[in-house]
Design a protein around this nucleic acid. Structure first.
Lengths: 119, 119
DNA sequence: AAGCTGCTTAGAGAATCATCTAGACAACAT
DNA sequence: ATGTTGTCTAGATGATTCTCTAAGCAGCTT
């Protein structure tokens, strides 16, 4: 675990020029979000009251094999978007809101120069 | 142009279960954001005072050929993240804040159940 | 301990993607 | 009209991705 390499002081927004390193880091997160299955998995986890979902429930919700779901969960995990814990037989996943918040804020147009009304 | 197919009434957030169609639509946007070059291009456009950037300025900022930049700009355009207009010799690009806002809000953890502190 | 179930890892194959070169179109200049 | 410059399209290619099957580990049950 520990997937944050370049934790810098300030969270970037689109309105500030992005260094190549920072861009690569953010792009990796967005790329992980850029798959419909992963987005649905993430949504399924986030929508769950209690915040935790068993892998078996996720697998049941899709027409995909277990290994495929496992692959997508790993992508989400390695991107720092979710974390998991084994409890006995089952493995439970939950989302990491801080990471989502960082990405959300990066895209937030409130922090971004509005075109044709720029200040 | 006109890339919004299923404009529904409410913008989705992660906290609500995502339909496969909606997930596919959102994933396409995030996939476009999931490339470091495109993210830097978008940042370069968004950071520009006045909100508009000539393609030639973008191309100059990268160690990539013109066609490659053009390819990425097309991806951004088809995702509805930017739009462009030709003015004489040059083509100018600007971002579309509404689209960014939609994606930002989708990821906003304020709209999302916090794990272990769920409602 | 032997077997069963839940989940992950390993490896393979088809599809998609990012990049390039070559060529085309658009607008301006001479 | 012809040439020059800015941008885009077409086609090709190596790399990456998503999915599967097969096999492995972890923990429970008997």
């Amino acid at each position: 675990m520990s997937s944050q390499q370049n934790a810098e002081c300030c969270e970037p927004t689109l309105s500030e020029a992005l260094s190549p390193d920072r861009a690569a880091e953010l792009a990796r997160s967005f790329k992980v979000l850029g798959d419909p299955v992963r987005l649905r998995v993430l949504s399924l986890i986030a929508a769950r009251r209690g915040g935790e979902v068993c892998v078996c429930d996720i697998t049941d919700a899709f027409d995909l094999t277990g290994p495929t779901i496992s692959y997508h969960l790993r992508q989400l995990r390695e991107a720092g978007l979710v974390d998991c814990e084994r409890r006995g037989t089952w493995v439970y996943y939950w989302i990491i809101p801080a990471k989502l918040g960082l990405l959300s804020q990066f895209l937030d147009p409130a922090d971004t120069v509005t075109p044709t009304a720029g200040a």
